[in-house]
Write a protein that binds this DNA or RNA. Structure first.
Length: 556
RNA sequence: GGCCCCGUAGCUCAGUGGAUAGAGCAGCAGCCUUCGAAGCUGUUGGUCGGGAGUCCGAGUCUCCCCGGGGUCGCCA
């Protein structure tokens, strides 16, 4: 494959033509308008189109049609560009059909490289996702960040970046202590002590399981400790249990982290004090009521500041998170850190942006916020909350509908949209999950290839120049959309578009299959050419499913 | 109350300011002696929540209103 996207080649040709038109006709004001090239919905409007002439009408002070015509006359036709047309102020471009057919060979040859680019070559990026409080098992609510973060990581890798998938373990602070205390209380209860679970503790069964595990291994060995001593003793053990679970369940989803980064270690590294000192030096920190505050008035109108260190001397979450981000970007030298967060951190995001701005790191800090996942519990929509004990375990969902359907479900809608999860419905409808529609197309192609091989026909030596029908070339057009999509997503992070694309490509193939016989003993040359075509479609499907993190089966 | 997200077909949702708003599911009518029917074809279904505005052009941008969700702590 060429290193330059066809879309960008066309944009370049248009820009070149526009520049010469402006020079020859004495136009001014054309430089400010970027040339956006899109794929028109209506095939009558060509393969690619730009509306730049419409946008330039005002600055150039010419009718759009005249501008479009002037561009059309000057676009150099050749290579992938077969023809140019000016219509209603648009400039429409048609791709050369021979060139298009030749791309089948390029796609097949690229195979696992198809869709990859060097756009982000040399960039190191850290994507942090899921990272739920290590105080309990993963629920469907925390889980949404998994497929989003993993797929985004894959896309950025496709675009050439060196990506590190990170799970941030928040193993310090109040919730951590509360978790330890909850285990300690259960441990005491198991030894017959009459002690109640306080309302702010974690009440759920798994806490009992952890306590029972400790009792089974070590008996009453810790009963002589005070509750506070037990809390300190059991909290790390609880976190260990939680992380083991998190590792196991994310692996069930096909997610594998490069780093599990401990907040406790961050605190021991001294980075917190270092960051605090830097903020102090910048004059953005002040003391009040025995606490240390970050200046906030520049970022938010009616707020004076936010606490970095509490009056009891304990670092607050905001302070720790600022230090964490500084550590990633400076110490570990990532060019960019992208966090996948639930929308309940919206206010935290405002705080973090303010802090990153002060530290000069704002342009290296990005966040994808996803809206909350609710679940249907006994017919009522509820928020999941581990502290209330009401949640739906991610593991249960994966076991019920499978990894592929689970991932596909979470990637179908944009992060901005709220999701409601009904387990019963999900199980009932799991066979209708669109993921099977896409996988079926992949398996169907595999089956065609098997059938062909049985009849002694392979794609080897197939001449793609024989691919001239519209139905054939439309498949190539669509397959070539993948590299463009990867380039889009690396910029706007909208990974859900991968599922839409997968569905579109699969649908196009299913339609093609109905109208075109691939394996035909009476016409071996054409069969070979079409085998190469379906192979190219299979490559595009497999690459797309790979980015989504869903398997591409040869049989179903 | 301030800030953020959402409101598009019966349901679930796509839709970088472009040309005639789409898909899956559900409904209806069809299609397997031939490469996989987990499929295909046709068809029903829309005041893009409502109203103003910006623009050559608005589902998309701005403002107001309505409805749903989130958030605003020396918790994380």
């Amino acid at each position: 494959m060429s290193d330059v996207l066809l879309r960008d080649q066309i944009a370049g040709a248009l820009k070149d033509a526009l520049g010469r038109a402006a020079g020859e006709l004495g136009w001014s004001g054309v430089d400010g308008e970027p040339i956006k090239v899109e794929r028109p919905e209506n095939p009558d409007h060509g393969d690619y189109a730009t509306s730049v002439a419409l946008r330039l009408a005002r600055p150039v002070r010419k009718p759009p049609r005249d501008i479009a015509e002037a561009i059309r006359e000057r676009v150099k036709v050749g290579g992938p560009i077969a023809s140019v047309e000016a219509l209603n102020g648009f400039v429409n471009i048609r791709v050369d059909l021979k060139w298009l057919a030749s791309q089948v060979d390029e796609i097949v040859r690229a195979d696992k490289q198809f869709g990859r680019s060097k756009a982000l070559a040399g960039k190191r990026m850290q994507i942090e996702f899921v990272s739920a409080n290590p105080t309990g098992p993963l629920t469907v609510a925390n889980a949404r960040g998994g497929p989003l973060g993993d797929a985004l990581s894959s896309v950025l890798e496709f675009a050439g970046a060196a990506v590190e998938r990170e799970y941030y373990v928040e193993d310090t602070g109040t919730q951590f202590d509360t978790f330890g205390r909850s285990i300690a209380i259960r441990y005491r209860q198991l030894h017959g002590e009459n002690i109640e679970i306080p309302p702010d503790a974690y009440p759920a069964e798994y806490v009992k399981d952890i306590a029972a595990g400790i009792k089974a291994r070590e008996g009453d060995k810790w009963m002589k400790l005070s509750l506070e001593e037990q809390t300190k003793r059991f909290a790390p053990e609880g976190v260990e249990w939680v992380l083991r679970e998190a590792k196991r369940v994310t692996a069930m989803l096909g997610i594998h982290y490069d780093t599990w980064f401990s907040q406790a270690e961050l605190m021991r590294s001294g980075y917190f004090e270092k960051t605090l000192a830097e903020l102090r030096k910048l004059g953005k920190v002040y003391e009040k009521d025995g606490a240390v505050w970050l200046e906030a008035s520049e970022a938010v109108d009616d707020k004076e500041g936010w606490v970095l260190v509490r009056s009891n001397g304990e670092p607050g979450y905001l302070g720790k998170d600022i230090a964490y981000h500084v550590q990633s970007l400076r110490e570990r030298a990532f060019d960019k850190k992208i966090d996948i967060w639930g929308s309940n951190t919206h206010y935290h995001l405002i705080q973090m942006r303010a802090a990153m701005k002060v530290l000069g790191l704002l342009d290296r800090f990005e966040v994808v916020l996803y809206q909350y996942v609710r679940f249907l519990h006994e017919g009522v929509l509820k928020r999941m909350a581990r502290r209330s004990g009401e949640f739906l375990l991610l593991e249960d969902v994966i076991e019920a509908v499978g990894k592929d359907a689970t991932r596909y479900f979470f990637l179908q809608s944009s992060a901005d949209r709220q999701l409601d999860f009904d387990l019963e419905l999900a199980i009932q409808q799991s066979n209708e999950n669109p993921v099977y529609y896409v996988q079926y197309a992949h398996a169907r192609i595999a089956s065609i290839l098997r059938t062909a091989a049985e009849r002694g026909i392979t794609s080897d030596g197939g001449d793609v120049a024989l691919l001239t029908e519209k139905g054939e070339l439309d498949l190539v057009r669509l397959a070539l959309r993948l590299p463009e999509l990867v380039d889009d997503i690396r910029q706007h992070y909208g990974v859900h578009q991968l599922t839409t694309y997968a569905l579109e490509l699969a649908g196009a193939f299913h339609g093609f299959y109905r109208d075109h016989r691939v394996v035909d003993d009476a016409d071996v040359p054409r069969s070979k050419a079409r085998l190469r075509l379906v192979l190219a479609v299979q490559v595009a499907l497999r690459q797309t499913l790979g980015l989504i993190g869903v398997s591409a089966p040869d049989k179903m």
